[in-house]
Amino acid sequence: MNDENKPVEVPEELLNQVAVTSMGELASQSFIDKAYNWGRRNSVWPVFFGLACCAIEMIATASSRYDFSRFGMEVMRASPRQADLLIISGTVTKKMLPQIIRLYNQMPEPKYVLAMGACASGGGPFKEGYNVVSGIDKFLPVDVYVPGCPPTPQALIHGLMKLQEKIDSQSIKEVSWYDKENRGDPIPMPVLGPDLMDPRDFSANGKAKE
């Protein structure tokens, strides 16, 4: 490569098949990011984890008519340790919340959370309920929200594509999971007492923290 800045002509049939870069790009890391993200965005493995009605539409999205394996996502893992994406597909109840947080804490980085449907995003139709957590974002960092009750499979796929866009925008230099200082602690486990108890609230009051 003599001229670093001159774009290389790629024959049409090879578009999307080869990666073209320059020394400059290589040096500036953006090629590494591209390769890193290209690999990650096309193999997002969700946890095989259904919560409520939205889970049925999630399964429909996995099935042949909508087929999210076109995006490299068909490998739904029942174990969180093998997964990259937690789709919160339904109503988050107080009784279930500790389990969800445990699942999330068990997932290896990089990990993403997609809140599917009205319930996971903000409590949905059951928001008033005494056992309902109004949105998983009170506890987990959510990357993509998909509205709907339930979102159609098309909407879910759109959300997954948005997630891919988010992955594309990340840089290996800045991502938190390679940052030794700020790698982030596991989410503290809420406890079921007389009502749901979030350890983060109680430590603020100077009370015991697990």
């Binding site: 109004s134 009170k138 406890v191 007492g193 108890m197 979030d198 009370k207 015991a208 697990e210």
Partner: peptide
């Protein structure tokens, strides 16, 4: 949010309530 739960006054969280109920 967070003001919406009422705990008994003398609650000692994580002492009385063992996570494995």
């Amino acid at each position: 949010y967070k003001k919406n739960v009422v705990y008994p006054d003398n609650l000692k969280p994580f002492e009385e309530y063992d996570p494995s109920v």
